[in-house]
């Protein structure tokens, strides 16, 4: 099952209420927000209404918010050899 990854690139400020309603229905509330919708005619019709504002890609699996955030997190630059609380076994 494939999904549409829809990212809002341009805001709908000053656009007709119908356009803003479509974005609300898609769950896109601010710029650079991303939603994943299963590929369907319904989703396609909604995308076509706001095609000037969004970026669309077809993906196999939706990426959860947590995973997207973890992917953005930079490498900390260190790793913990051993925690202080764990006793050393001799």
């Amino acid at each position: 099952m494939s999904y549409f990854r829809i990212t809002l690139l341009r805001s709908a400020i000053g656009l007709p209420q119908k356009t803003r309603g479509v974005l609300k229905a898609l769950g896109l509330r601010k710029r650079m927000a991303t939603v994943y919708l299963p590929v369907s005619q319904d989703a396609a019709g909604q995308i076509m209404k706001v095609k000037e504002l969004v970026d669309v890609a077809e993906v196999e699996q939706p990426v959860t918010k947590e995973l997207a955030k973890a992917a953005r997190r930079p490498d900390p630059g260190f790793y913990v050899e051993q925690k202080a609380s764990t006793p050393v076994l001799s």
Binding site: S2, I47, E52, V54, E58
Partner: peptide, 21 residues
């Protein structure tokens, strides 16, 4: 915009459907 429309079209074509818009 052309790219968005073509991606939507290809995704629907893979499922064997299309839509009026």
């Amino acid at each position: 915009v052309d790219k968005v429309v073509s991606i939507v079209d290809q995704a629907l074509a893979k499922k064997g459907t299309t839509t009026a818009a």
